[in-house]
Design a protein around this nucleic acid. Structure first.
Length: 491
RNA sequence: CGGGGUAUAGCACAGUCCGGUUAGUGUACCUGCUUUGGGAGCAGGGGGUCGCAGGUUCGAAUCCUGCUACCCCGACCA
């Protein structure tokens, strides 16, 4: 497997599916383009959910739930929105099956045709704004800061495990504000929150920026994004936050009485991250031995493996382990003690490395005599013998160190993969031979962006929020430009 | 929807070109003994309508025809 992992010439997605399946994260289900997330993989998602949810709550957001089915007519109310999603919707047309009169099993009952078709939500703006209309009358009802944890369906022509599945899990925030500035502030607050989550918890460095008009969300005035870089040099859009202006308020007629007694349309935002983040986590950190999970998102941070010959030995090891786990528990460190008898230690070592468990402790007869244990860390694959006394403190420090090390490693790689170019030839050369982000001048037109995409497959990933003003010439058209933007091949 | 590929044991594959013993290998599974500090060893055992339907032949996993499913590449991807 090693070769495929490190070689960019190899088929990346093949490696990716092998790894994910082997790593017990997911497997393809019988339904085309959908995924089964196995318990270990789902545990990672739950960790992500819990952290994000608490960050949303801290910033004043609350959770709610809206229907899976959206009447077709809702979609036609916002022109850009319907255009963006029309081609990838699952549509419910009937509500009943019946036995086939010709005896060929079960068929759709034509008599049970729906008056109006229902769309399985690809995103919930329309049904939520239809509801908000009734919730908002006065400036006193604002801001409305709601998040929803849900599944959505997008009937993509081609799917890719975790990165673009037909059905995926996500959270979607939908907020309503009295003023334009407040809505923009909210949009920016959330993209910063996403950035903090990616970097501090996923240990994935991201570049925050805004999308070009071509890449903007259907129905938004501005789309903010966090862009991560995978180990094969491709970019991954990992989270987005949209400033929707008054588009949806106007489409769904959501008005409020201002302090001054005037009737005004509300200002809106929407934002989301999905199970795609799990793809980002895997592709940003994994190595030839499998997953590498950051301690803050690992389902268990420590795995303890006993090494023994006879049952009496296991008993005395287990006693020692109980002392250790008691101390770990007191510090809030999660662990798994794998004393199963049907696998040998070597098998367990390899298995937990594949699963990406940050720290492994092995305790055997030798350690019992010396009052020690063997501590192995996943990120560096190094081991050392450590006294059992104060092991909890040692592990706590080690977990912090691992979290930091994983991030720094990814950051060093990412920074090495941002290349400034000043000519189109150079641009194409870097895309072909190096990959990563290419920082270049662009004339600001959709036409140029489109041409570059057609010729190289590279798109503008974002106009970074942090940038230096710099006069230059567009690499494609030669027209003047005030700043560089980031191009990349992407998932 | 276009181009390419695959279908044989739970999983991963060989065998197909050039038809011919009882369809094989790895792994997983079951039994026993020995093992256990990096995916254990030996011995024995169970598991297959060779994707489906036709055809050619004394004889088909293998040749022919039709069908189906899946994978990869492309179009698509707020």
């Amino acid at each position: 497997m090693a070769k495929e992992l490190t070689s960019r010439e190899e088929n990346y997605s093949q490696w990716y599916q092998d790894l994910v399946i082997k790593a017990d994260l997911a497997e393809n289900s019988a339904v085309r383009g959908c995924m089964v997330i196995k318990p270990y993989g789902y545990a990672i998602w739950e960790k992500m959910q819990a952290q994000l949810d608490s960050m949303f709550k801290e910033t004043g957001h609350v959770n709610a739930y809206f229907p899976l089915f959206i009447p077709k007519s809702f979609f036609s109310k916002e022109a850009d929105h319907v255009e963006g999603f029309a081609k990838e919707c699952a549509v419910v047309t009937h509500y009943r099956l019946k036995n086939d009169p010709d005896g060929n099993g079960v068929v759709v009952d034509d008599d049970a045709k729906l008056e109006e078709e229902l769309i399985v939500r690809p995103t919930s703006e329309t049904i939520i704004w239809n509801t908000y209309k009734n919730w908002i009358q006065s400036y006193r009802d604002l801001p409305l800061l709601i998040n929803q944890w849900a599944n959505v369906v997008r009937w993509e022509m081609r799917t890719r495990l975790f990165l673009r599945t037909a059905e995926f899990l996500w959270q979607e925030g939908h907020t309503a504000h009295a003023t334009k500035n407040e809505a923009i502030e909210e949009t920016e607050k959330i993209i910063n929150l996403y950035g903090e989550f990616a970097e501090k918890y996923m240990a994935v460095p991201v570049i925050k920026g805004i999308k070009s008009a071509n890449e903007r969300f259907a129905g938004a005035l501005e789309t903010y994004t966090i862009e991560a870089l995978m180990q094969d040099g491709k970019a991954l859009q990992s989270g987005t936050s949209h400033f929707l202006g008054q588009n949806f308020a106007k489409a769904f007629d959501v008005k409020f009485a201002s302090k001054e007694g005037k009737e005004e349309y509300v200002w809106a935002t929407s934002w989301g991250v999905s199970t795609r983040l799990m793809g980002a986590l895997i592709m940003a950190h994994s190595d030839d031995n499998g997953l590498v999970l950051p301690p803050k998102l690992a389902p268990y941070q420590v795995v303890i493996v006993p090494i023994y010959r006879k049952e009496e030995q296991l008993n005395s090891i287990s006693e020692k382990v109980n002392e250790v786990t008691g101390k770990l528990k007191a510090r809030g460190i999660s662990f798994k003690y794998d004393d199963s008898v049907n696998r040998k230690p070597g098998w367990k070592f390899a298995e937990y490395e594949l699963k990406g468990v940050p720290v492994r402790i092995a305790i055997g007869p030798r350690d019992l005599e010396n009052g020690t244990c063997e501590v192995a860390r996943r990120d560096t694959l190094t081991k050392e013998v450590v006294p059992l006394e104060d092991i909890d403190q040692y592990i706590e420090n080690l977990l912090d160190e691992i979290q930091e090390n994983i991030f720094n490693k990814a950051l060093v790689y990412r920074d090495s993969m941002v290349t400034k170019v000043d000519s189109y030839d150079e641009f194409k050369e870097v895309l072909l031979n190096k990959g990563g982000f290419v920082s270049a001048h662009w004339d600001g037109t959709s036409e140029t962006e489109q041409k570059i995409k057609e010729e190289t497959k590279a798109t503008i990933r974002c106009l970074p929020l942090e940038y230096e003003e710099e006069k230059g010439k567009c690499i494609y058209s030669g027209e003047p430009s005030q700043r560089r933007v980031l191009f990349a091949l992407s998932y």
